[in-house]
């Protein structure tokens, strides 16, 4: 039961984007299309789960004073793996995500979970935490991307949503990202307020 709770908390209650407001940089930058959002979400989830496993496994032998550099080295190794794999098998996605794949190294969610969770818990809960947070990140990204791509280019996954709709170009540009994210965070707060 407790394991399931570690998993589900990342989906809504502690959603990394809408509630903790971490990892906003990729959320704003690569949410222009659904493909980018899902690719980014998958890459970040893989790095998050893997680094949580390693950090949690070696948590007792890392010296307290240099733990952050240690986490970064672990995370950077997995990011390099993802980057090379993506360049080899999904070159189009790698090209459209560009600099944001290597930038996963400094993604606050991943470092945040290593510091706040994996370095204090056993391996199994850390896996569940990583999966939940990664999925929450991916879902949030996909939601932002669905709104932005739907309004800004009129189609999602190259499927026309409404016939005859004239896309509002601003939504796929930077202001569209900030507006969408701001409104979604407001909606999240409203839902949380209603629940409480």
């Amino acid at each position: 039961m407790k394991l399931i709770r570690e998993f589900t908390k990342g989906l809504f209650k502690q959603n990394p984007i809408f509630v903790i407001a971490l990892g906003l940089c990729p959320a704003l930058a690569v949410s222009t299309t659904m493909e980018n959002a899902l690719g980014m979400g998958a890459a970040a989830t893989f790095v998050l789960v893997s680094s949580n496993i390693i950090v949690s496994a070696i948590r007792n032998i890392i010296p307290q004073k240099i733990r952050i550099p240690c986490f970064i080295v672990v995370i950077a190794s997995f990011v390099t793996i993802v980057e090379l794999l993506m360049a080899a098998y999904l070159p189009a996605l790698a090209k459209s995500l560009g600099i944001f794949v290597p930038l996963i190294v400094v993604n606050c969610i991943i470092l945040g979970r290593a510091e706040a969770f994996a370095s204090k818990h056993k391996v199994l809960p850390s896996i569940m935490d990583g999966l939940g947070m990664g999925l929450g990140f991916t879902l949030a990204l996909a939601l932002v991307a669905a709104i932005r791509e739907g309004l800004g280019s009129g189609k999602i996954f190259d499927v026309v949503v409404i016939k005859g709709y004239e896309p509002a170009t601003m939504m796929v540009l930077a202001p569209g990202a900030l507006l969408t994210l701001g409104i979604l965070i407001a909606v999240t707060n409203l839902i949380k307020k209603r629940k409480a």
Binding site: E166, P167, A168, T169, M170, M171, L173, P175
Partner: peptide
């Protein structure tokens, strides 16, 4: 500004 950027 929104209209000008969206539907130039």
């Amino acid at each position: 500004a929104f209209l000008l950027i969206s539907w130039p």
